[in-house]
Design a protein around this nucleic acid. Structure first.
Length: 781
DNA sequence: GGGGGTAAGTTTTTT
DNA sequence: ACTTACCCCC
């Protein structure tokens, strides 16, 4: 029964060979074979808007890839005229791989296959100047974002403790997800932060980004939208170019992505979106299921195809998943069915605590192992990552091989970010954030004091910090020690920059890490993870070889950087439910189905009913990952934040259909009373933990903060900047000060101007003697 | 400027 | 309970 799906997931090995393509030419629509009627309908409806509502395991990716093959085979568009958008890099790689099975290396010509962000980046780099950027703009990650916002908050004299940068980041992110630029943010929403200054801070933050020639992730989409809106000719050219548009995981798109898509699709209107409202689990980060409804509204007459025939799971599993998801309101309403057999019932086991839970799972896996069950086909899907540890511990003691998916990603690691910051300083000398990051790493004795001098001068003159340093080290603003250190550092940057293009970029980067003392720093570090960090740095250098040059590497690194793991060993997978979307396993273990964990109280607190429904979809996703067997667990006691909590089974367990479930009562030792399921279960009335309050402490306190303080020093005079180089810093221009004028310097006190050399003045100070200082540090006395 | 102590905040995750 | 971030003292 599973043949169509099976034959697809195990494609013929000759695909891609010359003979295969010749054969394909002989019968051009061969790839359509094995599609069911609905899939075929979705593939063949090439003209006009199409919305494919594809339930879990109904072959949605197959429809997308076949559709692309069909478009190319029928010569309606060439591969570079097809825009194919996914949500994650993983999904886009997967799609490219699958397309290659149909059209061979032609898939390499699919230059517009990628994530929303990667395609936006490509577009923005082409037209950067139209939105006030340069084409080599930097893409900031979350960490950089927060640091930048902290600077903005500080510069506005806002109490950082009361108004954490994280919160501002959350706000701004939300606005960007909805495609709201600073001037479009509804007034009411901008008042909730720092006494009504949220909107202003957003604007300041955006200004800072532009100065830094940088974009955050949200900007990639927003600036692209702005590009399209403000330059209809540009938009038109892409509307013309993209004859067909395809979107995967459509239920995960946010409003900005929707706007982006709508602008491009409204040209030829050949747009096909594939999604499943029941698998929308990213609402908390801005995804908006209503985009599915908007689609039918904005593209009237759209053909809607439902895929409901499931090729993945057994009847019992499907029935259980369907029964749970039926409790959600506001579904578009699909009912999955299968021609396959019912298989085994979904098992539900109660146990005493999380430790026993891990033991039961491990025991069961050992049994499966003896039955020659592939470990690669077993997954443990948890709600929250803290649950993973207990399983790991158990698997280590029992010797079950496992892999953990998730956790900190490669490019988020400290050492990788530091290394990248060095490379950025060399390639993009205007990158202040990168400079600040590594200026004192390894420790060079350049602390807050030094940094703030640089910062002040850079800000006052509107120049990058590295540039500011060049001026400052020529004077006596700084003590000799930091001055020499900075001079040396700048010398290093210059030396490395001079080698760009002269020696291979991998070699150069090795040199940089070596000469900067960064490698030495970790070698000297005798903590446990130092060796691993050095290993990661080597891995970083290795991964650079795939790129033409350092510039190209840096342009892509922030968007796509995966831990190269060519893992093929047979291991059990431990991952979160979120991480499991789109995957399938023969056997799935779903531990921790308890109130207080799943549904997660935070989701209920913050999103109320919508939150509960999203958690329920998560349950649905979890169950439908299983092909043959799903095993649910709940514990009576679980340690959360270090404290033991008595827990009761999740309400989702009560929502399972009795007929498809086997309750494993003998499993747990002394679990009390999970017998009375169905009917008036005592669990029905139990409220989840913690009705934690929406705490926005401080409308009033915020008001106090809003007293206008003009903090940032007035620019003495703006340097003329072109391409990041200071062209005229007035060595010929006139100074604000006259010879002999009495001035004040915050560090050296009062003095008389003795020599004026552009922006560098020599002053005879009353206390400190003759010093060379920068004009912008001086005031009239 | 650096190191050690304390306090706070701990769902999910991509780009 | 545990980590990380910040503050204060040396």
């Amino acid at each position: 029964m599973n043949e169509p799906y099976k034959s697809f997931s195990a494609p013929s090995p000759i695909v891609g060979s010359i003979s295969a393509r010749a054969a394909a030419n002989a019968s051009p629509h061969r790839y359509l074979q094995g599609l069911n009627p609905e899939q075929l309908e979705a593939v063949e409806a090439l003209d006009g808007p199409v919305l494919v509502l594809a339930g879990a395991g109904t072959g949605k990716t197959r429809v997308l890839t076949t559709r692309i093959a069909h478009i190319i085979a029928t010569k309606r568009a060439r591969n570079q005229e097809i825009l194919s958008v996914t949500f994650t890099n993983k999904a886009s790689r997967e799609m490219k791989h699958r397309i290659a099975l149909y059209i061979g290396e032609m898939a390499e010509g699919m230059q517009w296959l990628g994530t929303f962000h990667s395609i936006s980046t490509k577009l923005l780099r082409r037209h950067a100047e139209l939105v006030g950027l340069k084409s080599d703009f930097t893409i900031l990650d979350t960490d950089d974002q927060i640091r930048l916002m902290k600077q903005v908050i500080r510069a506005e004299n806002i109490d950082e403790k009361r108004w954490p940068a994280r919160q501002l980041a959350f706000l701004i992110d939300g606005w960007k997800n909805r495609g709201l630029s600073p001037d479009k943010v509804p007034a009411a929403e901008a008042t909730g932060y720092a006494g009504g200054r949220g909107g202003a801070l957003y604007r300041l933050y955006q200004n800072r980004l532009k100065t830094l020639n940088a974009c955050d992730f949200g900007d990639l989409l927003m600036e692209c939208i702005r590009l399209f809106q403000e330059h209809p000719d540009v938009l038109k050219s892409y509307q013309d170019r993209f004859k067909y548009i395809l979107v995967d995981e459509y239920q995960d798109t946010n409003v900005a992505q929707y706007l982006w898509l709508r602008l491009l699709a409204q040209g030829r209107r050949n747009v096909c979106c594939v999604g499943d409202d029941d698998q929308s689990i990213y609402g908390w980060r801005g995804a908006d299921v209503d985009n599915i409804l908007r689609f039918e509204h904005d593209f009237p007459g759209a053909k809607v195809v439902k895929l409901e025939r499931n090729y993945r799971s057994t009847g019992h599993i499907l029935a259980s998943a369907a029964h749970i998801i039926k409790n959600n309101e506001g579904r578009l309403g699909k009912t999955l069915f299968t021609d396959g057999n019912m298989g085994e019932q979904v098992s539900v086991s109660g146990c005493w605590d999380s430790e026993e839970e891990a033991r039961l799972v491990a025991d069961e896996i050992e049994v499966l192992q003896h039955k020659k069950h592939q470990l690669n086909e077993i997954a443990i899907l948890v709600r929250a990552s803290f649950q993973m540890r207990e399983f790991e511990e158990r698997f280590v003691t029992t010797g079950i091989p496992y892999r953990v998916i998730g956790g900190p990603r490669f490019y988020e690691r400290l050492e990788i970010r530091d290394a990248l910051a060095y490379f950025r300083c060399v390639c993009q000398p205007a990158d202040d954030l990168a400079f600040e990051r590594i200026v004192n790493t390894p420790k060079r004795g350049l602390g807050d004091a030094t940094l703030s001098v640089i910062h002040t001068y850079a800000r006052a003159n509107g120049i990058p910090m590295i540039q500011a340093v060049r001026f400052i080290v020529e004077t006596e603003e700084l003590k000799p020690k930091p001055r020499t250190t900075l001079k040396d550092l700048i010398g290093c940057f210059d030396r490395w920059a001079a080698q760009l293009g002269k020696i291979s970029h991998t070699e150069l980067c090795e040199t940089i890490l070596e000469e900067s003392g960064y490698i030495a720093m970790w070698k000297a570090d005798r903590s446990a993870d130092a060796a691993g960090r050095l290993e990661n740095l080597k891995e970083l250098i290795r991964s650079m070889q795939d790129f033409e040059n350092l510039q190209g590497f840096l342009e892509h690194i922030s968007l796509v950087m995966e831990t190269a793991s060519g893992e093929t060993e047979d291991r059990v997978t431990i991952m979160t439910l979120h991480g499991a979307k789109g995957l399938e396993f023969e056997t799935v273990f779903l531990p921790g189905w308890e109130e207080g964990l799943f549904p997660h109280p935070r989701a209920l607190d913050e999103q109320g009913r919508a939150g509960l429904e999203e958690e329920r979809r998560l349950a649905y996703v979890g169950l439908t990952r299983a092909k043959r067997k799903a095993n649910l667990f709940f514990a009576s006691n679980r340690r959360i934040h270090g404290m033991w909590n008595a827990t009761i089974p999740s309400r989702f367990i009560d929502e399972l259909p009795e007929a498809n479930v086997l309750v494993n009562e003998g499993a747990g030792s002394n679990f009390g009373g999970y017998n009375q399921r169905g009917g008036n279960s005592r669990f029905d009335t139990v409220q989840p933990f913690g009705n934690s309050s929406y705490n926005t402490p401080g409308w009033q306190r915020g008001q106090q903060n809003s007293s206008q303080v003009n903090s940032s020093p007035k620019p003495a005079k703006h340097s003329v900047m072109i391409e990041g180089e200071v062209l005229a810093n007035s060595s010929t221009g006139t100074s604000r000060f006259d010879m002999g004028a009495r001035i004040f310097h915050t560090k050296f006190g009062y003095g008389l101007v003795a020599v004026i050399d552009g922006n560098k003045l020599t002053v005879d100070f009353e206390k400190a003697g003759r010093k060379m200082v920068l004009e912008s540090f001086l005031q009239n006395a």
